[in-house]
Design a protein around this nucleic acid. Structure first.
Lengths: 346, 346
DNA sequence: CTGAAAGCGCTTACAG
DNA sequence: CTGAAAGCGCTTACAG
């Protein structure tokens, strides 16, 4: 399938390829008549300059790589993360950029690291956004050191890098969760930790524990668990924890995120413990299921559209102007109280 | 940020660029010693050939465009469609292809059509997958006529095109829905139509009505509605329909899809009508919310992973070998009965 | 087995 | 205002 090229357009328009190029790139030194004539030929022939040719001359591809780091067998399983993807694509499209999507299983595996490096070095993308990787991922630092423009979500590099934009959760999620439960009269509170390699997970659990401590409440070991960030993790963790402490159950469980909270739901249902009645459950993130869950899940919720459109905007600023207003930002979450939390004062 | 090129690698390895190229492309006529030596230099210098250079010489980009056609303000709102995306990306990654994601608002708008044409003609992609467009979208035919490899979901072109792969829902969804309700004793059944520009929507509603007709049941006008494919459409439609027929309610409502069914839920809740008790609700698709909904939604569910991985596989077959086993296929759905449907025989 | 040369489709100094 | 020429980074006949 041979496509028409600038030589052919030049011939048809009776000008040189230089002039065709000038018209396409909107150079000022082309008389209006010539410009219009050439444009007509271009339109009539559905001519679009080959990206390869332009790129060889140093033009950008207006493409941003989206590196999805996940060890799950399928990233499709979680509708929350799918949403991140969609927000990024939406905003990029709006800014007239395209998103090249890549799934990366494991950034400690050399082959996967190689894949990332290649995607950048082949010249496919102008910048890359990374979502889902653990803290301390050397390839990120390597890319930044090489001067690549990189966006991250829930990740910060220890050193300052002028070409890094990082979008993060606020630091006070744990405190918001603790305060909510405390004010509703809860004193016997369990805390389920998330993935300790993820920035926000650490903040969340530690923040909750610290805030409770400040109120004079200690979370005993028997009401502490580690679930990772998946529903199944939440299920296993809650089942084990609660089975071991049936004679002295907490009145509330703080899950590291909403997915984990759904796992806690499963465990509670299985054990015949009433959700939002016997035991309250609270999550964090703002999973699209929250309102659909039964009972509807209380959570500290985030505006991910805002989170990711800001990330994309800043990245593009950096790409196009070489600077941006802020390299690192933290989004505020909103506590949304639903039926999964009981007011013990009533 | 100047990257290393093949000239430099050739110099470092003490060979010509031709030889470097031969090594990279795994040509047989290179002695093992030379190959290894050159490879070492390549690895040591993190050299990756520029895609632009290769493409200019006729190589493929191993990139597939994913055109998401939607008029919604944000595609992120629906976790079902997000899932389609993820399945496609997953499978492409597995096959060592990349996905370039594009959101297209409206394929009747010339500017949007232009965008699609440009994306193909610029040489960014080897093929394109289209999801969400209405029946009879001329740009699809145009691309096919130009010899482009195109994949579609829930769309067929009237003419046969050797480079079109189309993934579709089975034709009998409506019948499955009707049979299910009939066998559970329902005789007063409402049908909500979806978007009449979408292939499956037509099949679904018409299929249900025809199957009921065969059983001697006619769906009266007052129990017929048009909701499109969104939750809000379902809400508005069900509210209007039911408010007008409160003295004679149906015992079941067939929604055009699961999202619409959730809208029906909203309307029923608002009207104080018991879901799965007073009125049964049945959807179709297999939305990730179904199991979470209260009551859990009965639906004809599809294995979208299978649907899309097959689409991607066939597309790649076509790209790489010029042929594929089947250009058009229809996926079978499975009726999953949950609490939203009542057995009236009990 | 290997290198020099041509050429893919562009853009951009340069010269006029 | 405009064209001829050089060059971006590759690959591929071609010749040896």
């Amino acid at each position: 399938m041979k496509r028409i090229n600038s030589t052919e357009i030049a011939r048809l328009a009776g000008v040189s390829r230089s002039t065709v190029s000038r018209v396409i790139n909107n150079y000022p030194n082309v008389p209006e008549a010539t410009r219009e004539h050439v444009m007509r030929i271009i339109r009539e022939n559905h001519y679009y300059p080959q990206l390869s040719g332009k790129m060889l001359m140093g033009k950008r591809s207006r493409t941003i790589g989206l590196f999805w780091v996940t060890d799950c067998s399928s990233i499709a399983n979680d509708s929350l993360s799918s949403m991140y993807f969609m927000h990024i694509i939406d905003e990029a499209t709006f800014k007239n950029y395209m998103i090249l999507s890549c799934v990366v299983r494991n950034l400690t595996d050399p082959e996967n690291v190689q894949f990332v490096r290649r995607t950048f070095n082949e010249g496919r993308i102008d910048a890359g956004i990374f979502v889902g990787m653990d803290l301390n991922t050397p390839i990120i630092t390597e890319l930044l050191d090489a001067g690549e423009v990189v966006g991250t979500f829930d990740y910060t590099d220890p050193a300052h890098h002028p070409t890094l934009i990082s979008a993060n959760f606020e630091k006070n999620i744990g405190e918001k969760v603790a305060d909510c439960l405390y004010e509703l009269g809860h004193r016997k509170i369990a805390v389920i930790h998330g993935d300790m390699n993820k920035l926000t997970c650490i903040d969340r659990a530690e923040g909750t524990i610290a805030a409770l401590e400040k109120r004079g409440i200690t979370v005993p070991d028997k009401w502490t668990g580690y679930a990772g960030i998946t529903q199944n993790g939440g299920y296993e963790c809650a089942k084990a924890m609660l089975s071991a402490t049936l004679d002295d159950l907490p009145t509330a469980i703080c899950a590291s995120n909403d997915c984990v909270a759904f796992g806690v739901y499963q465990a509670l249902n299985e054990l015949g413990i009433g959700i939002g009645t016997d035991i309250s459950v609270i999550g964090a993130d703002g999973h699209p299921h929250n309102g659909f869950a039964y009972p509807a899940l209380t959570s500290v919720e985030f505006d991910f559209r805002e989170m990711f459109s800001t990330l994309v905007d800043r990245l593009i600023d950096l790409l196009e102007t070489g600077e941006t207003e802020q390299n690192e930002y933290y989004m505020e979450g909103t506590l949304v109280i639903r039926d999964s939390v009981r007011d013990l004062r009533l």
